[in-house]
Structures are given as structure tokens and as C-alpha cells.
Amino acid sequence: MIPAAVKAATGTDLVDAVIARASAGPLPAPGPAAGHAAVRFLMAPGAGRVTAVGGLDEAAAGPGIILAHATTAAGRAVAITHSFLDRLGCAVAVGRDAEEAAHRARAAVRRMRIEMRVTEAG
């Protein structure tokens, strides 16, 4: 999610820039920039199985939200690995400053509903 946050904050698409550099092409012009962006993740509460995913439209509708999506689906078995695999959803938000961007991203993540049948404590 770092490339999405960087693009939102600076207007620079890191993926396009890497491709341009690797192909000896011109660097793309930056797009609109908000100045500040934040990424927050919805973490699994413990090992188990995802039973339902919801709240994504509500999360995406919040102020300053650039991206809000689940990185899981109903039926997925979740094992706590203390890695990126423990993330069940994420939000990228922009704001007037870093604090506002972080607050908006956290609020979006709280609107997401990932229901699980937990089999052990996280």
C-alpha cells in the first residue's frame, strides 16, 4: 500500500516511475498531490475462518479515503503469522496533515466488518 499512499501524498506513481526508469523512458509527470497520506490495516483478531466481509462501501465513502478494501474473503482460513498475512483489510486516506490522514484511515478501517470464527486467541 506504500505506492498508493505515496501517489496520494506526492502525486508520483512509484510503479510508473520504476517502469519508466527500467525502460529508459521519460519519467511521468506527477499528478495531484494531497501532501499527507496514511495507510492503516485491519488485523486478524486470531486464527480462524472468515465468515463474512462487509462495510467496504461505508469505509470507502469516508472523507479523504483514497482506497478501502478487504484483502480476504469469506471462507479463508487465517493463521496468525505475524506478517502481512495477518492483515484482512486496509485503507489509504489523505488529509491536511499526517494526523488527519491517519485519523481518516483508522476510521475507514473501523467501518470494515470482517467476521470470523476464531479458533485461538490472537
Rank of each mutant, 00 (worst) to 15 (best):
V78Y: 01
E58I: 06
A79M: 14
A47M: 04
G55F: 06
E115P: 00
A17E: 06
P28Q: 02
A44R: 01
D97Y: 12
V94Q: 08
R49S: 05
D86C: 12
M1E: 01
A47S: 15
G95E: 00
R49A: 03
H103T: 15
A68K: 05
R117F: 13
T119V: 06
D57I: 02
A29N: 10
G46E: 03
R40S: 15
A29R: 10
I80Y: 02
S23L: 01
A105W: 03
T10L: 09
A74N: 02
D86Q: 00
R87N: 04
A33K: 07
A91H: 10
V92Y: 09
P32Q: 01
R110L: 09
L14A: 04
E120Y: 12
A8Y: 10
A47V: 02
A22D: 04
R96C: 00
A29M: 07
R117Q: 11
V92C: 12
L67F: 09
K7F: 06
V39N: 08
V53N: 07
H103A: 11
R87P: 15
L14W: 05
L85H: 12
V109Q: 11
F84H: 09
R111V: 08
T72E: 07
A101W: 10
A8R: 04
G55T: 09
G64A: 07
R49D: 02
L88P: 06
A70N: 07
R113L: 08
G46Y: 06
V15C: 04
A9S: 15
V53R: 08
A105L: 03
V39W: 15
A61Y: 13
F41R: 02
A121F: 15
A105N: 11
E58Q: 13
A22W: 07
G55W: 10
I65K: 11
A91F: 13
A59P: 00
F41M: 05
G48C: 03
M43Q: 06
G95P: 02
V94L: 03
V118R: 02
A74C: 04
G31F: 13
G55N: 08
A105Y: 09
R111L: 14
T119D: 15
A77V: 13
A102Q: 07
D16I: 00
H82T: 04
T51V: 04
G89P: 08
R111W: 01
P32G: 07
P28F: 10
A60G: 14
A107M: 12
R110Q: 13
A17M: 03
R106H: 10
V39K: 10
A5S: 12
V50H: 09
I66D: 03
A33G: 04
A29P: 00
T51F: 05
P63S: 07
V18R: 06
V6A: 00
A52P: 15
P32D: 12
